[in-house]
């Protein structure tokens, strides 16, 4: 099923399907290693719509909540 990044459980791994947003945002994420067909693992999510941390290729990235909402991920549940 496809959910957004904020809905993933900590520890869960999924495949990025789509990044919705402006070109700048998409490109920035891409260059940090987050792009369609990449496997990402959610590390943690912070309280009260706080930043979401994910791991892509051994690197951890913190993504704001609103941005994370626009990253769609395929997970098997």
């Amino acid at each position: 099923m496809t959910i957004d990044l904020t809905q993933m459980q900590p520890g869960e791994t999924g495949t990025v399907k789509e990044i919705q947003g402006g070109q700048g945002f998409v490109r920035k994420l891409q260059s940090m290693g987050v792009r369609p067909e990449k496997k990402i693992t959610k590390v943690s999510s912070h309280f009260w719509r706080g930043p979401q941390t994910i791991e892509v290729d051994n690197i951890q990235i913190a993504v704001g909540f609103g941005m994370a909402k626009r990253i769609l991920v395929e997970v098997s549940r």
Binding site: M32, P51, Q60, I61, A62, G66
Partner: peptide, 10 residues
């Protein structure tokens, strides 16, 4: 205020 998007170094 814009959102955070940063790499967390090891």
């Amino acid at each position: 205020s814009p959102e955070i998007l940063v790499e967390i170094p090891p």
